[in-house]
Nucleic acid binder design. Structure first.
Lengths: 121, 121
DNA sequence: TGGCGATATGATGGATCCGTCAAACCAGCA
DNA sequence: TGCTGGTTTGACGGATCCATCATATCGCCA
């Protein structure tokens, strides 16, 4: 599991990234980064996902201890389990910015990098 | 792909995390975080992986633009493509520390974690 | 109690990822 | 040229992940 201390750190860390490795989950975490808490209903309308699909992803995020859920009335409210999650997303974005920038600077390697061949324009 | 600007940002970001979501790749990136550059031979002995397995993972990291490779003589040297990669790993570690700490505070055993993550009834 | 809206869980087929084996490639050197 | 160590690539079975459908649970209210 994510928090199993018997595993080496790099394995636990890889696990963390695996928990983040899906667009729907990133979407949810970003929405939660911009608000104290959001109900599942709110996430549903903001993401446009199918209810059960969203719930699956929320389950993953819960199991990876990245979010917490609290039921009040008939709604369930989610929030980030730690502010560091938002921080991680910010750093990820700045890394992406660096990669993209760097990439624009040297388009000549395009032929050797499959990733580059799909670049627009 | 990782750098395809036509895709929404959260999808590109999820892709980045997918590139990081494996212990061997985390291991390599951490080794590269502590040195200017390391040859494949060096990575081989430090990680203990099979040559072709390591090469596969290096290929992934290259395709995701997280590392760069340069051949000098008969050896190939790898280095981080951007310092932000190391930064991302640091933030990931601090997030993990927070999760683990928070977890120890709430309950004792790591094995009972699934119960902790269940929804309140 | 029964029904309804909101959310979660279980099962299933299809896609993707992983480790390993075999083969190819590349740079130096005899 | 051919050999050798270092590195990459291609292919394949097995494992894991994903979206969807069907079903279950919870809290509320009539």
């Amino acid at each position: 599991m994510l928090t199993d201390a018997s595993k080496p750190l790099y394995e636990v860390k890889a696990n963390l990234f695996k928990g983040l490795a899906h667009p729907a989950r990133i979407r949810v975490l970003e929405i939660l980064s911009g608000a104290e808490e959001v109900s599942v209903a709110g996430l549903l309308t903001e993401t446009g996902l199918e209810a059960s699909n969203l719930s699956q992803h929320l389950g993953v995020l819960r199991r990876f201890l990245l979010v917490t859920a609290e039921r009040r009335g008939s709604l369930v409210y989610y929030r980030l389990a730690h502010p560091e999650v938002a921080e991680l997303l910010r750093v990820a974005r700045s890394l992406l910015a660096a990669v993209l920038q760097d990439n624009r600077d040297r388009l000549e390697v395009a032929d050797s990098l499959p990733a580059l061949t799909e670049l627009p324009r």
